[in-house]
Design a protein around this nucleic acid. Sequence first.
RNA 1: CGGGGCGUAGCGCAGCCCGGCUAGCGCGCUUGGUUCGGGACCAAGAGGUCCCGGGUUCGAAUCCCGGCGCCCCGACCA
Length: 563
Amino acid sequence: MRLSQGFIPTVKEIPADAVIPSHQLMIRAGMVRALAAGVYAFLPLGQRAMRKAEEIVRQEMDAIGGQEFLLPALSPIELWEETGRVKAFGDTLFHIKNRPLVLAPTHEEVICWLAKNHIASYKDMPQIWYQIQTKFRNEPRPRSGVLRGRQFLMKDSYSLDRSPQDLDRSYELHAEAYKKIFTRCGLRYFIVGASSGAMGGTGSQEFMMESDAGEDVIALSEDSSYAANVEVAASTMPRAPRFPENKPLEEIHTPNVKTIDQLAEFLKVEHGRLAKSVVYWGGDTPVLIMMMGNDALNESKLMSVLGAEVRPIEAEKLQQLTGADGGSIGPVGLKGFTILADKRLEGANGLVSGANRNDYHYGNIDLTRDCTIHGYHDLRTVQAGEPAPNGSGKLRIVKGIELGHIFKLGTKYSDALNAKFLDENGQSLPVVMGSYGIGIERILACHIEQNHDKDGIFWDKVLAPYQIHLIAVSTKSKEVVQAADGLYETLGNEGIEVLYDDRSDISPGFKFKDADLLGMPFQVIVGEKNLAAGKIEIKTRKSGERQLVDRGSAVEALRTLLA
RNA sequence: CGGGGCGUAGCGCAGCCCGGCUAGCGCGCUUGGUUCGGGACCAAGAGGUCCCGGGUUCGAAUCCCGGCGCCCCGACCA
């Protein structure tokens, strides 16, 4: 492409609305323009990079036996009613006003519809179906350029298997394919255990890139051998002790004590002796959760345990159900609640907790004697500095961008939409599904986040919109123009993608700045002085390294560099 | 949805508090000339519903009310 004819609108100044480097550079390099909040127009350069990323994804999906589909974005709302996801997605789902259709935010329903109609026997499976297609989600707050948009390109795939064991295999195939994809794209990433959450599946992992622009919070051990989303992350923390002497329950007057810190101060005891009670709705049931000391409840973990949506209980409702306010709630004598406790409190005694009467606490509580605990679970939110559960040092907490997510769905959707098959015994069983996603824009944005400097992008050659940025330094010189034109043609005939800055009336400095901004891996610079000596200059964008090669061997040198 | 900020030429901004505007600056754009290895220079130009609607006033970019849009923090994020 000749730059004199192409549409690559670069901008010198940093756009006011862009905050993170990838967003700023994608705009400055003329890759994208924002049309509305979270809605981006991809211009030719951005589109070329998108295609490169897509192609890598496509190759690796094909390599694990994936078959490519193109499913519609428009989807009958009935299908979504049947799985309960009209409600589950809520305002995130785009509704069409003048037809009973929605814009699909993902495609489990459509896949299930196809499976129901066409997967009849165990012999029809396994299947891996995928597509690279535009998704629509009415995000409450789009941000960070293309990292969270309301419309975005996603590779989504779905595995159909006859058993959970076969699902494990499809899941592993995807994990391996994803590793190859992100490695080929030159991304530094890590894999974390993630929450199954409301999806109700049996396992899930996220492929993450560490970044302050990320929206996920990750616990990583020092050597990264342990990595988990804080929604599910665990740590090795000591349990509350059980004392040999089991004193009788006592009621303590604790005027104006509202928080655990105040209580510890008032009673002059360690936090470990205190059991904090928090109250949530788990679906329609009130749930009291006991946490040790100031440990923070992890709502994602609670949701997994309860298998229901959770939300903090309203203060008035709490008062109505217990007769006390938030700071004075406890498990002793509490009726009509599900009572859960964190693992750290399992079997503990000598604890202090609320007495369900304002300004009073109970002391010497023995959880095995004085109350009924319906279950002990890991419900804590891990904190930085705590020991990793695999013994690999202390945890640090970092932010991450989710590049991909793989998910064992199980039979949730096949049950809801009645996608069944017959096994070899003639038994009718629901198809066992997996669901796997990669955000294509995020591959590009993350690549730029990890590969840029103050002047611009440095593209890895596999994602670069063009391999070579050819610069005719001065169009005034006939020799330079002739030589550059010749190179452009030769390289083109070699099948090498060349962006050719043939613009006249543009100063050399301007061309160099543009080339650094656009970030093609190699710049081929044809200048008057070098040419007079029979030389062509090749600059590697990332390292800044420059070499002079004989004019006649330039094509060969580039072929070697690009190999 | 809570909190904060912003909306003035294609882009980046000043002006707004304290009303007087014929609305300005830099970049970009057009024309002519000079320049030509790290975002050149000179000259002449084009380009604006000052986000929208209402109000106050002799007079509103500026003050008041309402709305819309965009960005950031938080909540949310299959």
